[in-house]
Structures are given as C-alpha cells and as structure tokens.
Design a protein around this nucleic acid. Structure first.
Length: 532
RNA sequence: CGGGGUGUAGCGUAGCCCGGUAUCGCGCUUGGUUUGGGACCAAGAGAUCGUCAGUUCGAAUCUGGCCACCCCGACCA
C-alpha cells in the first residue's frame, strides 16, 4: 500500500497543503484518494476493510500493538498489550474450568516418537506438521564460525515437539488409573504447542501457539460424552459473554473431526468478511487412547474395562476471532470484559498549572473507578497532542475515553466518548462513577448485538447448488443446506467451492430435504462456509 | 514442495539499466513555539546497501552461488 506513493508525489504535496487549511479539506482528501491517505503524516493508519480485508487484519494487529512477526518463520511475538488480552481470556476461562471441577497440571513439551505412533489416526493427522528433536548438543564449528550440531550427540529416540498432548497424558493416565475410584480425572493444562504449518497468519495460524488443553478420563461413555458437551457449553458461554461473539454449536463431520476422536464438537463464529472461524473444539475420544495406551480400570463388579476419554481446547486463535469480529477501520474494538484498559483519561492543557488542576480531578475519578474494579489509565504524556492520543487509544480499542480540559474544570464536567459507536457526551464529573459502569455494560451488550445481527443477516438457507455457489461468491457467510451425509459429497463440494461443512448444528431441527449436491434425501441441514 | 516477487537507517523507500560508498518521508535526539480530533520550526544522530565469492583501480549498481522473507497454490485449529 505504500508502494504507489511515488506515483502521486505531486498530489501528496497538494493534499498536504489542503490538510493544513482545515478539517473539511481533510475529509475531502479521504474521499478523493484512499491510497494517499495513509502516507500523509500518520504512522497509525490502517487499510480499509472494504479495500483489502486481510491486509486490514494484519495492519490492525500491528498498529494496535498486539503482535508482530518474529524472525523465526511462522512464529509471532505477542506484545504486552496483546498478551494482556490473552491473560484476561485465560483468567476467565481458568475460573470456568475450576468451577466445573477441573485442575491444572503440566506435561512435557517433548513427546517420544513412539508415543505418537501408538494411535494410528492420530499419527496420520499430525505426522505432516511435527517438529522433531534429533540431537541434544552443539559444538564449535571446526572452521571457527559459530556452532554446529554435534553429530556425536544423536538421540536414541527422537522427540516430537508436542502438536497436542493426548499421547503423553494418556501415558501418564495409565499409571494413575487402576480402579473406578480413580475416576474421573479432570485435568487441564495451559501451554504452547507446535504445528509446522506451511502458511501462517498472526494469531489465526502460527507454527507455535498458546492454548489450553483439557484431558479427562471417565468410567463410562455417558459421563465422557456429558463432559465433552459440558466443555463445549463452557466455550460457547465464554465466547459469547466475554468476547461478545455469537457462535453456533455443532458436531464435526467425519471428514473434519479431530484425528483420534469418535466425535468432535465445535463452536463456529462468523467473521466480518463472511468467513467462518472455528473458535473452540471438544472431543469425545471414546476408548481410542485408552486402547492405544492400555489404560484399564477395575469396575465395581471387579471386571477390567477400558477408560473413556475427552479432550478440549481453545487457543490464541481466539484473539484473531476477537479482532475480526468487532473492529472497524479506525482500529480495534474490545469488549469491556476483556479490555486491558477500560477507561483512558486524556487531559487537555496548555500550562503545567492547568495540568496540575486537571490531575487533581483525575486522581479522584480514577480512584473511584478503580475501587469498582475498572482499569483506568491517565494519559498525561506531554509529547503528544490530545488528537493523537484519541486516535491511538481508538486504534487500541479502549472502550471508554474521558477528556478533561479547562472548560470542564469550569463547568464541573467531562467529555465521555465510547469506542464502539464513537458517540460523545458531556457528563457531570460527579456522575462519572455511576454512569461509566453502565456505559461499559452497554458497550459489552451493544457489540454482541451488533455481531449477532451481522451473523443472522449472513446466515442463509439455500436449497440449490447453483444458489449455493452464487451465495459463496456474492454474499459470503454461513449457509444452511441439506447434505446427503457422505464424505464423497463433502469432498466434492469442498473441491469445487472451497466451502466446508463447518458443523452439523446441535439445534438443527429435523427437516426433510434433498442434498444440494447429489439430490439424495437428507433429514437435516448442515452449516457450510468458507473458513479460516 | 511448485509458481511469482523482494532484500538499501527502527519503518517505508530512491538510486541499479549506463560502476566512483547513498535519496526522500515517517520515527528518534536536542531546543523553541504549540495542545478541545493525528502540531510546527530549527539543529542533530542513525546504513559495513541480505550473504559469500568473482570481474574491476574502484561494486548498492555487473556475474555466479547461497540465505531469508513476502504473495499465489497444495496442507491445516
């Protein structure tokens, strides 16, 4: 987007001149030339969504200071601001896990190659994207330049950097479980995993990512299935109520399910560009891993039985969902429940004396808001103008901004602006403590409602393959359509349209119809979309 | 792993065709004026031109190898 600047060099001079004149001229510039807009004076502008959605996403992640590309291919550096959002997610989820009886533990990063091989479909699923440790020592290079891998230090058995931990964990469960009295085991771990992806995108798909993985063991299939469904509900609850992103709960088709699972359940969210994003998964593993690792228990009748398992996870990919679901062309929009900073206060002052007077008022306001549990930042930097600060905090998605200047001191007021709608209001200083909490709640509700409306407006029932293809290209979104249930049809549709079956929605009503592809009978609709 | 592209200051780039150690903007530092929607002026600091080799009196520029990254496909949460 910067490369075309030189073509317009003279235009830039002209527009720069206009910019100095007045704000109307500035708006004119925006209307006349999007490509120039960016380069004029601001280091903070991002590409418009309508222009290039994926570039908008990349710009936003970088300009909102969430993350950046690392020098290690496919990996990212999560910056402090981005990481504090992730920490908020962790805190909320961790509490929900604890409240449902789970405890945290930690299993090793390295998995012996032989473990991974024990469950056949599991190997198939991950073999192509594993990082492998083959040596344990370096030595000085004989030519004197740097270090080389010491060929003498080859590992007896190579180690896989975990792409997921089912195998190490079930290897431990074998040692822990003898009797029905040892069950259930309800464990979660927060960790990093590595999947050597060919193509990566910040947060959405990186070679290394952070996540949580729950692994539970049960004495009956029924109990394991209940656990699987319960955790799916926990995820849906979190994503909708904290992230303010509506989701559709469903079951994966055979073709899309987790390698090693009997059933995979998921929550699917719709992004602003009409593409679906899987936001969380929960697997009923049946006895597959118990079989592979020979994990048996003695039941009440004294008979040996294989243990039933589940696993479930959400990752830093949720950050991508959060960003893409709500944000606009001015930057990030964060739900107050996950915002690292709820309220930023910007002073408007000319002299130190003015700043001191304002600071005294700000201290009172922020103390009272903090007492209510809100995080408040007083942006009293003296090297930036208020306008710059406004734009910067909008870019970073701070839900509420309060501005206080000399005029406010006189009138006993403040100016309050909300990020989601950009509305401003003048408020009595005394009302701040009662009004700001209401406003934050309103923002949380509003962005959810907005996302829900978008999702519903872009959820279509379609009954013919022609319409299906047309909709994918012209009005991308979720499509509910009949499917004959075969993997051949699923694969053919994927091949021809790039749309996949996101899930078979749990609340899908029985409904007789014909498969849009084969014309064969179907008794319920499934959810299709192009996906991240 | 196929197809295309790019590597020059923290970031974005000019220069390369036609060899003589480097342009501009943003950012940074200092000083001053500013501050209710992305300030301005002045002075400064900052680059072994991805890497290795070759040609040459002399290489960012020409030649060859290597490396890295980006985009498009196949694969994937």
């Amino acid at each position: 987007m910067f490369s075309n600047v030189n073509l317009y060099n003279s235009d830039i001079l002209f527009y720069s001149f206009l910019l100095k004149q007045n704000a109307t001229a500035k708006r004119l510039v925006y209307l006349q030339s999007d490509s120039i807009r960016i380069t004029l004076k601001m280091g903070k502008e991002i590409t418009n969504r309508s222009e290039d959605y994926s570039q908008w996403y990349i710009d936003l992640v970088k300009k909102a200071d969430l993350a950046e590309n690392s020098d290690v291919r496919g990996c990212m550096v999560i910056k402090p601001y981005g990481f504090s959002i992730w920490e908020k997610m962790q805190t909320a989820l961790d509490k929900m896990f604890k409240d449902t009886g789970h405890t945290n533990a930690y299993f090793p990063l390295f998995i012996p190659k032989s473990f991974l091989a024990k469950e056949a479909s599991h190997v198939d699923g991950f073999a192509k994207e594993c990082a492998i440790v083959t040596h344990y020592r370096l030595k000085n290079s004989p030519d004197g330049n740097g270090v080389i891998v010491d060929p003498e230090a080859k590992l007896e058995e190579e180690l896989i950097v975990r792409p997921t931990s089912e195998t190490v964990i079930w290897n431990s469960y074998k040692k822990w479980i003898q009797s029905y009295r040892d069950l259930p085991i309800l464990i979660n771990q927060w960790c990093n995993v590595v999947r050597w992806e060919m193509r990566t995108r910040l947060f959405l798909r990186t070679a290394e990512f952070l996540w949580q993985e729950g692994h539970t063991a049960h004495s009956t299939a029924d109990e394991a299935i209940k656990e699987t469904r319960q955790m799916l509900d926990v995820y849906a609850d979190f994503v909708e109520n904290f992230m303010a992103v509506p989701v559709i709960k469903g079951k994966k088709s055979e073709g899309e399910k987790f390698p090693g699972a009997i059933d995979t359940y998921c929550i699917e969210a719709l992004m602003q560009d009409g593409k679906a994003l899987q936001a969380g998964t929960s697997h009923f593993l049946g006895q597959n891993f118990a079989k592979a690792f020979d994990v048996q228990f003695t039941n009440k009748e004294g008979k040996l039985e294989l243990v039933w398992g589940t696993s479930w996870g959400v990752s830093t990919r949720l950050m991508g969902a959060l960003i893409m679901a709500h944000s606009d062309d001015d930057g990030l929009i964060l739900p107050p429940k996950l915002a690292p900073i709820h309220v930023v206060i910007v002073p408007i002052f000319k002299t130190d004396e003015e700043l001191n007077k304002i600071s005294a008022k700000v201290d009172v306001i922020s103390a009272s808001l903090r007492k209510l549990g809100y995080s408040v930042k007083f942006d009293n930097r003296d090297n930036y103008k208020p306008g710059f600060k406004f734009a910067e905090h909008e870019m970073r998605g701070v839900p509420v901004r309060i501005a206080i200047g000399p005029r406010d001191l006189e009138n006993g007021t403040v100016e309050v602006a909300r990020r989601d709608t950009k509305e401003k209001q003048v408020m009595k200083m005394d009302d701040v403590v009662t009004e700001i909490p209401k406003l934050l709640d309103a923002i949380q509700g509003n962005i959810y409602q907005k996302a829900l409306k978008f999702r519903n407006d872009n959820l279509r029932k379609i009954d013919s393959y022609d319409e299906f293809k047309k909709a994918l290209d012209e009005t991308p979104g979720f499509i509910l359509a009949h499917w004959d249930g075969t993997k051949e049809t699923e694969a053919a549709i994927k091949e021809e349209t790039k749309a996949t079956i996101r899930c078979i929605p749990l609340d899908a009503p029985e409904e007789n119809g014909k498969c849009i592809y084969s014309g064969k009978p179907s008794n319920r609709r499934v959810l299709f979309a192009r996906a991240y």
